[in-house]
Nucleic acid binder design. Structure first.
Lengths: 235, 235
DNA sequence: CTAAATTATTAAGAAATTGTGAACTTAAAA
DNA sequence: TTTTAAGTTCACAATTTCTTAATAATTTAG
């Protein structure tokens, strides 16, 4: 069984080290103490689970958590928030911004392990990682896809949009969801999304799923209906 | 928003009562102190989430949890295990048999609430499953219904009308009721409702309830009469 | 049963939303 | 510098949904 990727984010480098040491047997670990770096690591590397201290020098863990939850590509990654000096208020805040668990220090390695695994198990069971992309292959490094053997180059935006849909099949994705995930802070017209959808669709020609518009509320990825092989006899 | 169904299972009836009292604002609660009864309730009633004491007179909470996890229909229901005298070993055992969370008594109501909600949110997000009503499934987010496996998209107006009927079965709904609820201030002819009813009915084809007109006073949702396969002999 | 009232359905145009080509901008590559 | 590719916005076409009106069908009262 492959080790799951765990990202540890703590202001205190010694704690990072202790945790990394103690958990390296079960996880493939990355550590950092900077929230911005963490965000970059997460978007680029998408860890399986995140262990996050509420106190971070460069921006607090709460706001990072909130930011991660707003991103369609990331929001399924479980987040455990740790804190040094626990208060009920901190706990409520943590859960409020979407944390999956909340632990007070000093932390017992055994406890952390058990809780990390409990979260991972849930996500794994419930999420549709088993979705079949059918005749589509993704090459993240090159922003390329392969469809029935034919290669097609996508732009970065198109590629990321495709990833959003593939990781949320049959789920409504609003234009705002897409903007938040891909454009982050930059302000762009909502209708700009349409243009990219249009060109993505053109490149996905024979893909056995289709990106359909949901009148008034966004887009959705659906398996395309099987077309009858027989014509109906209409007068 | 509908209250989620919470099943509380504790040996100590007083604790059941205290918890039920404190959580009744947010949840629709059932309590029991017997594991076998609990299992029956769960299979029959499928609560949204379960709060379970590890000590049960009639069989321990651990084995109940294990049993629940083995059942495909139940295994997605989140389970929080409580214990009176916590030990690391109990915690490990709890997570081991598939608990989603582990809490030691004495429990703070605020903590329980936060943790229950965190679990519910996760399950809800990951398994975007619809709400059932008879043989009809509703997907509110995307205004879609599923009937016998076939999906049908409703317009926003149609979907909201359907929800009005489903939340008031067997109750007379006047056109004005519908207008006030859906159109709010906008002025629209009462007859407009009829048109939407018409198209909604077309899409509800095989639904085992039917929207009937009440001559002169509106509409009502009724279970549709089973049609006899044989003709009745009317003179 | 008939006439009046009410409901059902269809069709046409209005309104809202989505699709897409094209112009323009920017950034990187040749 | 020129060329190329990608991104953004705009304008207009295409599509979907909404409303109204007209007409057909059904129900009720007398």
């Amino acid at each position: 069984m492959n080790k799951k990727k765990l990202l540890i984010l703590d202001d205190d480098i010694r704690i990072c080290e202790v945790l990394a040491q103690g958990l390296s047997g079960e996880f493939e670990i990355t550590t950092t103490h900077d929230a911005d770096i963490a965000y970059r690591i997460i978007t680029k590397n998408s860890p399986d689970i995140i262990l996050l201290d509420i106190h971070l020098g460069t921006g607090c863990g709460i706001s990072l958590c909130k930011k991660l939850r707003a991103n369609q590509l990331i929001k399924n990654i479980p987040i455990l928030i740790m804190t040094g000096h626990g208060t009920t208020d901190k706990m409520l805040q943590s859960f409020d911004v979407g944390a999956d668990d909340y632990i007070e220090k000093p932390v017992d390695l055994v406890v952390i392990k058990a809780r990390l695994n409990a979260r991972l198990r849930r996500v794994q069971e419930l999420s549709h990682t088993g979705v079949c992309f059918g005749n589509l292959k993704l090459y993240s490094e090159r922003f390329e896809i392969e469809l029935d053997g034919r290669c097609e180059r996508l732009s970065e935006i198109e590629f990321n949009m495709l990833k959003i849909f593939l990781s949320n099949p049959n789920k409504k994705i609003s234009r705002m969801d897409i903007l938040k995930t891909i454009w982050d802070d930059t302000r762009v017209e909502e209708r700009t999304v349409d243009v990219h959808i249009s060109s993505l669709r053109r490149k996905l020609k024979d893909f056995n799923h289709h990106i359909k518009a949901l009148y008034g509320s966004g887009y959705i990825l659906r398996p395309s209906e099987k077309k009858s092989l027989f014509k109906s006899f209409e007068a």
